[in-house]
């Protein structure tokens, strides 16, 4: 059994440097690596390129990295709901690349799976296609999109074991499984870290081979971005 467990967030982030490219799991505030984001926000590192679906809100999630000016380039799909991010985008303090959400997911998955590039129809005929190779298959046009290259993947799962096996919960799964193994180093934080042999192998979503370091996070806030309930 290969053990992936580390004891501290500092150990989990060992080797991170300013200017690196980071993939961060989560969709909005759902399934985000809260402990790792907080540690990065409190660190002296900066000028990161971040790959993530969204940009969090001003005082939580990925927003903590914009509030502390840690990001020089953002690759995402939808970047609303964060005023400080908006300010940095409009004042060109930060470079922003917007990518169709399915393409973003597949660029992560391709990096994970050792596939350098793929064709997708998303964005054909739009400005997303402007600099890309177009090819026709069976009468339909597709763009060539390349896999991401990245230094660290920072993901969040519900449960994990010391071998790095991960189980997600609900729609907190989102981009997290796709980013495991998609960077040189993958760090997973989990709500509950259990001894090996505790998790049912039938239920594992991400096998430990894709994870380099795992630790149990603490003080999960799991904030809700748009609390919506039934009218009663």
């Amino acid at each position: 059994m290969i053990r992936k467990k580390v004891d501290t967030v500092a150990e989990a982030l060992e080797g991170i440097q300013s200017g690196m490219t980071l993939m961060l799991g989560g969709f909005g505030l759902c399934g985000i690596p809260e402990n790792l984001i907080k540690a990065l926000a409190a660190s002296s590192y900066k000028n990161f390129c971040c790959i993530s679906a969204n940009v969090g809100v001003d005082d939580f999630g990925l927003g903590l990295l914009f509030g502390t000016q840690k990001v020089k380039k953002m690759i995402g799909s939808y970047v609303g709901e964060n005023q400080e991010f908006e300010r940095q985008m409009l004042s060109a303090e930060i470079e922003v690349i917007l990518t169709p959400m399915g393409t973003l997911a597949e660029k992560c998955r391709a990096a994970q799976m050792g596939i350098p590039a793929f064709y997708t129809p998303a964005g054909y005929g739009t400005e997303v296609a402007e600099t890309k190779e177009i090819r026709e298959f069976n009468g339909k046009n597709y763009l060539l999109e390349t896999a991401f290259t990245s230094d660290f993947s920072l993901v969040k799962a519900w449960k994990g074991d010391e071998a790095g096996n991960l189980i997600y919960r609900g729609t907190a799964r989102n981009f997290n499984p796709l980013m495991c193994g998609a960077s040189k180093i993958t760090v997973a934080e989990v709500e509950e870290l259990v001894p090996v042999g505790t998790l049912d192998p039938n239920q594992i979503h991400t096998p430990g081979i894709f994870v380099d370091r795992i630790f149990q996070g603490d003080h999960y806030e799991k904030r809700i971005e748009r609390r919506t309930v039934q009218n009663t």
């Binding site: 799909s77 939808y78 970047v79 169709p100 399915g102 998303a122 739009t126």
Partner: peptide, 9 residues
């Protein structure tokens, strides 16, 4: 601009 999300896909 807030982004296209999944609309283009």
């Amino acid at each position: 601009v807030k982004g296209m999300g999944g609309a283009m896909d």
